[in-house]
Design a protein around this nucleic acid. Structure first.
Lengths: 180, 180
DNA sequence: CTTACACCTGTGTCCAAGACACAGGTCAAG
DNA sequence: CTTGACCTGTGTCTTGGACACAGGTGTAAG
């Protein structure tokens, strides 16, 4: 139950509130196979998109995005069509955000969730994917490092050089004479 | 949030800007200083898209892309509609590729070229833009560095941990117990 | 009751720099 | 004549949302 709640702040107190108020219905909500009762508890425990977003420190657009691509599957209030995000959606979204922080793509996350939804361990997939993504990140890191150095050197070199008007075969001498 | 892979830095990969590795037959591009003769010689000296691409070490799609957005303005062979890239286009594209290597966006480059085309010095613009882009690159660099460290630490930590099957409130303990 | 306003819905489009696909035209060799 | 390599312009795809839009809903104030 105790989580790494290190990376987010005030919406986590909201989380505790929500989980606590939900405590008494745990049997009904997650475990009880009767969908009628499940829906019943939703009326009290579920939240709308903005509240969901606020609790996890993202925008409503982000919540809608993950809903659109069916990572989140909130119910719908029959009366007005509003989405109803449950604790399960909350946990799922929190998971998604954690995974994104670790460099997983949304597609990766879908794959991971597919395993978990089938009650299979997603861990082997997770290990495979992070190796892959880490390689790419190393690659990107090296490229960004090089680009940064190149740009820094350009700024230094150019500070010694004058402005010039373009000629027939030279558009900008700063850029074109920069060797590296 | 982590913008990870989406920061297309791909243009940096592998290409050392192999511009003048071509020593071939026609000495026309890059050697003849007289633009009038060059323009005149277009019927003979101009090249088609693939040859242009080859000379600068990029794909034909890249040449077409810059043509499409009107950074390159090759003529058209009236007989068959084929594009005819002149030495001016060659110089322009070489400039574009150099500028891309320094982190300028295509939009930046259009702005720079607009100045140059009006015979104004693009240098003040260039200096302003590189400051801006360098800032962004520093930012991206810091983010990539952090992401990389986070991922590396995850791999290390996870190597000590077992696989687990998901439970009601835990999708993947590796990801969800990872604190940082 | 009306009105204002904040919230909600789904859908479509945008971003960057090309890469890729596609339908159709051109050209030289065999 | 056919094959195959090349050419054309245009449209769509990529990421992870952000933003726009048209229209419906809920609520408090006047």
């Amino acid at each position: 139950m105790t989580k790494s709640r290190t990376n987010s702040l005030d919406f986590l107190s909201g989380l505790e509130l929500m989980i606590d108020s939900y405590q008494g219905k745990e049997q009904i909500f997650g475990v009880n196979p009767n969908p009628a009762i499940l829906r019943l508890s939703c009326e009290e425990g579920c939240v709308k998109v903005i509240e969901m977003a606020r609790r996890l420190g993202v925008t409503a657009d982000t919540v809608r995005f993950y809903t659109r691509i069916k990572i989140l599957k909130p119910g719908k209030n029959k009366a007005n069509g509003y989405r109803e995000y449950s604790e399960k959606d909350y946990n799922r979204l929190r998971f998604v955000l954690s995974a994104r922080q670790l460099g997983f793509s949304v597609e990766d996350i879908q794959e991971i969730l597919n395993h978990a939804d089938k009650k299979k361990s997603p861990c082997p997939t997770v290990r495979r994917l992070i190796d892959q993504r880490l390689n790419e990140t190393e690659q990107r890191f090296a490229e960004t490092l090089q680009l940064r150095e190149r740009m820094q050197q350009a700024v230094v070199e150019w500070s010694q050089k004058p402005d010039k008007v373009p000629t027939g075969h030279m558009i900008c001498h700063l850029i074109e004479e920069f060797s590296q």
